[in-house]
Computed example of a mutant assay.
Amino acid sequence: MQLEVGTVLEGKVTGITKFGAFIELPTGQTGMVHISEIAPTFVKEIHDFVTEGQTVKVKVLSIGENNKISLSMKQVEGQQNGAARAQQGGARPQRSPRPPRRRPEPQPQQHRPGNYEWQPRRNDSADFEDMMSHFKQTSDEKMSDLKKTVESKHGGYSRRSNSSK
């Protein structure tokens, strides 16, 4: 028997790990049902849903490199429930459509207190020399202010040795 993606088979649970369950298929191959494909609800503990030796129906999701077979129990359960509803003549209950998500509209630029311009406009016409001289002038002013502040905190006190006692 050749496996194909989408095929529903019965298999036997041969092993359980924290991330999934290994299923032996009728072909003799082994596939894995990832924890996210065990049930349509949140699965914290796989042992709550399957036990070793149990026969389960699985759907082949993919066949990857080295014949790694990815299986799903959740998708088989969904197919069976849909088929049962169709046999009963009932249609699948319709969900009300979600309204599309809207991105918030951008707020208009608000002026800062005091009408202060926080980001100065770039003067593209200024050349490098002008920018450097402006930077040096600003830097010198800041250093001068810093020196004044430090001197005023020390009160003009200079360190003298107290050896004259």
Rank of each mutant, 00 (worst) to 15 (best):
L3Q: 10
E4P: 01
L9T: 06
E10Q: 15
T17V: 14
G20A: 11
E24D: 02
G28S: 07
G31M: 06
G31K: 01
E37L: 05
A39D: 07
P40M: 12
F42P: 02
K44E: 01
E45D: 14
H47L: 08
T51S: 15
G53T: 07
G53Y: 05
K57D: 08
V58I: 07
V58T: 01
L61S: 15
N66K: 13
M73G: 01
Q79L: 01
Q79A: 07
Q80I: 12
G82S: 08
A84C: 08
R85C: 04
Q87M: 13
A91C: 01
R92Q: 14
P93E: 12
Q94R: 09
Q94F: 05
R98V: 06
R102N: 14
P104W: 02
Q107H: 13
Q109K: 13
Q110D: 06
P113E: 12
P113K: 07
E117D: 13
E117Y: 07
W118F: 00
D124T: 08
A126R: 13
F128K: 13
E129S: 00
D130C: 03
M131A: 09
M132P: 02
Q137D: 11
S139I: 07
D140S: 09
K142H: 06
S144A: 15
S144C: 03
K147G: 07
T149Y: 03
T149I: 10
V150M: 05
G156A: 14
S158P: 04
R160W: 03
K165T: 07
